[in-house]
Nucleic acid binder design. Sequence first.
DNA 1: GGCAGTCGTTACAACGATGTAGAGTGAACC
DNA 2: GGTTCACTCTACATCGTTGTAACGACTGCC
Lengths: 340, 340
Amino acid sequence: MAVTMYDVAARAGVSIKTVSNVVNGYRHIRPETKRRVEDAIAELGYKVNISARNLRQGRTGMIGLAVPEISLPYFAELADSVMRAAEARGFVVLIEQTGAQRDRELQVLASNHRRLTDGLLFSPLELDPEETHLLDVDYPLVLLGERMFGGPVDHVTMANVEASRAATAHLIERGCRRVAVIGAHPGETMGSAFLRLDGYRAALADAGLPYDPALVADAGLWHRSTGAAAMARLLDSGVEIDGVFGMNDALALGALHVLHTRRVAVPEEIAVVGFDDIDDARYSEPQLTSIAPGREQIARTAVDMLLERIAGVDVPPRRVVADFELVERESSAFGADVLR
Amino acid sequence: MAVTMYDVAARAGVSIKTVSNVVNGYRHIRPETKRRVEDAIAELGYKVNISARNLRQGRTGMIGLAVPEISLPYFAELADSVMRAAEARGFVVLIEQTGAQRDRELQVLASNHRRLTDGLLFSPLELDPEETHLLDVDYPLVLLGERMFGGPVDHVTMANVEASRAATAHLIERGCRRVAVIGAHPGETMGSAFLRLDGYRAALADAGLPYDPALVADAGLWHRSTGAAAMARLLDSGVEIDGVFGMNDALALGALHVLHTRRVAVPEEIAVVGFDDIDDARYSEPQLTSIAPGREQIARTAVDMLLERIAGVDVPPRRVVADFELVERESSAFGADVLR
DNA sequence: GGCAGTCGTTACAACGATGTAGAGTGAACC
DNA sequence: GGTTCACTCTACATCGTTGTAACGACTGCC
């Protein structure tokens, strides 16, 4: 059937180990021998059997990336960054979706695919922050995102609290006094929702503004639709609002949609800030001010950490917080410079 | 190091082949034996070594999916659908990005990863329609998208011409007489851009309307930004326009953005229709009328075809055209029902 | 000229699973 | 009562590669 090293070796008149050596770039080979082997490889169209190599080496050259949903823009862009970073280091990425379902997250951790990958980048949404024992696995693991940061594993995270604080402070500096926030997960004491709410409250406190629960809108899934629904609820409640902090861009874009529909001027009547700086933020109407959470840096750092673990580096669990940046656009601009 | 079948066999007091039989659900095993093996597996935490199984069986249980860019919404949603379809059939998907670069597309076809997957779903953008010989590969291959449909392989495609015709006809029915189209690739004689332009022209002809090249806007990459730029060019050109057909939703959404900025009423002054029905189409302002191209059906069909090829089905190349649907929303509605 | 060290190559075992062939039971059949 | 058959299990070879050990040839050095 398929061409193997034996075929190449026979054709080139050398041993299979020499073929292997050529394929793997072993130094000490006579140029003449190398040429003969390479010719034979080309003539026969030989390709290394990766399964055999994997078995022999005990590695697969693949890493897993488990995210809630690949079609959520943030995770699509994260996956993109991770794939590029991994590829640059000679690794392939196997993407898995958890659908933000607890049982699927558990499955991902224990699945057979773990024997197929050398390690896992895992962005959990539903696992309980206290279940850190679940993360005590026998393969290299690096966490992404905000949950369970007390766990026994490496963790790459964004500066949720600080960035939310900066986003909220930005609105306050622009003159907002009644800043609503969309995306809260009531009852949680960890995770992005909790942390971003924390940053929001900190900014209010910094400015000496009161915290008003009526300005906090829940949203389980962080989609445009839930953001739109939350914004509608806020408006219908009659509470006074002059600024909105969306815990992610999808929520904020959903909110923008409702504000537009209801003929509320943005940013004049209500200014809006999002979080994630997805590509769409540049193309909304008005363009959305957002927090760029350092996605490239997160991807690179996480891949590097994972590959270090795979290589056997044995140091205590590390935690990296990526740099963020507030990207100011129209949705929070004030005055004559609002529209070009 | 890792637990192998030998360890399990020793513990259960059976041969490794019996362990293998239990793991693989072989029928003729005494319940007592089966229990002992399963207990041993549980106690030792044994997991099958997939690399070894792959080597022995000559299959990997993985299929490749090569798309231009995972962060383009259409492809993110397609990847989602493909992963679900594959998973339901016991396969894992390995995603690769070509970045819509010709050399990367060639690479994907010849890459070592092909020995890692049992087959490939390939959505080419840049390969020349005449280079069908490039697709004469020695592994199962199913094409997605519109290019190279004369090739020697299975192909799953959307009804580009018919759907574009329907989209354009929809605008004409709504009263448009000067329908612009955004996304053309001048010089091409195949591919989505060519086909969708074809459908556009067919609809004009059906309605007895003239084809005016001044209404055709080129856009290499189908992004929001290029759609916005093309719309701006159309408006600046001074040509009369009362309808816009965006060859995909990103282009149409970019166009909407510009129309909004320029204070052009949609749909009253210019009606807009997109193509792909991505999630965002529901959340734009106004909501975007679009063509739903049958993504789920495409994913399911393509995966099924590929798995058939992998299983060895030997029939002539097949071509499947998915069903489409026009989803009417605000951007092409007329009259009092425009806004809720 | 002898010794050490490098170079180029080879033979062989090993990675961990599964396919094949067949051995040993016991039940069913004529 | 012997033959057949189904059942249960085992021994062994095998998938295609790479790591290890080792061998002969050559170089450089004293």
